[in-house]
Write a protein that binds this DNA or RNA. Structure first.
Lengths: 213, 213
DNA sequence: ATTTAACAAGGTATTTTTACGGTAACACGA
DNA sequence: TCGTGTTACCGTAAAAATACCTTGTTAAAT
């Protein structure tokens, strides 16, 4: 009954990786790579004609439309398509984020090809593929559930400004609010994160990908 | 005369990328992938038995031993082997760094397979492959050649402390010098980098890998 | 209907950071 | 020997950052 090949698609902005992976996977008799896309928007176009795709291997960091948004869109429009996230990093935020967005599994790009094959087959059979990476992080994330580390839109904008050389007064004028309000954002972040200086805020922001430098 | 295949090796820590690329390249009749390595140390081992390798496709960011050090080592021990850097990012520092280390070319992972083939063939023929990416950055780098951006040992240590929540007074006591001396380091860095705040210093340090967070 | 959270703002005081002035010892190469 | 760079230190004053107090509006949640 399991005679037919699994139809998969690859979404990744790096052509060499995408084509390489396609070439690699085509060596497995169980798998057929039916199309590739270089980002979410590209995928939205191509999936129209290939709606029978079963599994999409999805990169997370892509220009134009990233893995999170693309996964959400796929799950909203083609709910029966399985998504397997493929990432370079063992990043807790990324893992949780992709699973929340609707991915059925998360794998590192440093995995062995045979493990990828296993993952693809498992995700088709069961709808998900939970490896040690995912299960471990899920537990950690549940344990460390920190309700305090949630930031408002304004706080995140302010945090971004913190990494510049603007003084708080200048940030206030950039944000079109009073310096005192900026002070509130700062104090609120300090309290939430148990941080005591702008420097600490910046380092925290960079570490947790809240600030892009 | 050019009948023989070009023997190449791939060094990258991501197995899926490495194997995928090998699979892809093996489709080209002009190329033969003779071995793969997952980092510099791994390469040092494997090249012993494969000294006839002509081109090494080298990733930059790898654990254990990165692309820069590996390239330098190769050039010191196997000077006739050509190195083609393969990177995810169009990063000026990375481009210049790899070329300085001895690489003959620099390509993005989002390049097309055919361009990679051209690069490999060119690098074997001429010893280098200069695409728009590299040529443009080389000029920029020459223009921006900034002799002031050189730091003393103490300044670098101080810079590292800047990314903590310690005040300058506390940093001084950590470094066993007077607060006024710490002030000199700060002022000297500000002047050299045209920066006006501790925040700017920290962001600069992180951006240029002078600070590890 | 009341609480809660985000947003906005004012006042006051202290600490830290930053700017700018100067001096001196020491090593190193020209 | 002369300069140059590095390290090291002192003082003063202004600007910025931080701490702690307060009030109010709005919208969502309960």
């Amino acid at each position: 009954m399991e005679n037919e090949k699994i139809d998969i698609a690859i979404v990744d902005d790096h052509t060499l990786f995408r084509s390489g992976l396609a070439s690699l996977l085509s060596e497995f008799k169980e798998i057929s790579v039916i199309f590739e896309a270089k980002n979410g928007v590209d995928l939205q176009e191509k999936i129209k004609n290939e709606a029978n795709v079963q599994v999409i291997l999805m990169d997370i960091n892509m220009p134009i439309m990233d893995g999170y948004d693309t996964t959400k869109w796929i799950k909203a429009n083609y709910p029966r398509v399985h998504i397997l996230a493929l990432s370079m990093f063992e990043d807790e935020k990324a893992i949780i984020g992709m699973l929340k967005a609707g991915a059925g599994g998360y794998m590192l790009k440093e995995s062995k090809p045979s493990e990828l094959l296993t993952a693809v087959k498992t995700i088709v059979e069961k709808g998900f593929y939970i490896n040690d990476l995912v299960s471990g992080r899920l537990l950690i994330s549940l344990k460390n559930e920190n309700p305090k580390a949630t930031f408002s839109e304004k706080e995140l904008i302010f945090l971004q400004f913190c990494s510049t050389e603007l003084t708080y007064k200048e940030i206030a004028s950039e944000m079109n609010i009073s310096p005192r309000t900026v002070d509130n954002y700062r104090e609120s972040l300090f309290a939430k994160l148990n941080i005591k200086s702008r420097t600490g805020l910046v380092v925290y922001g960079i570490k947790h990908n809240l600030i892009t430098i």
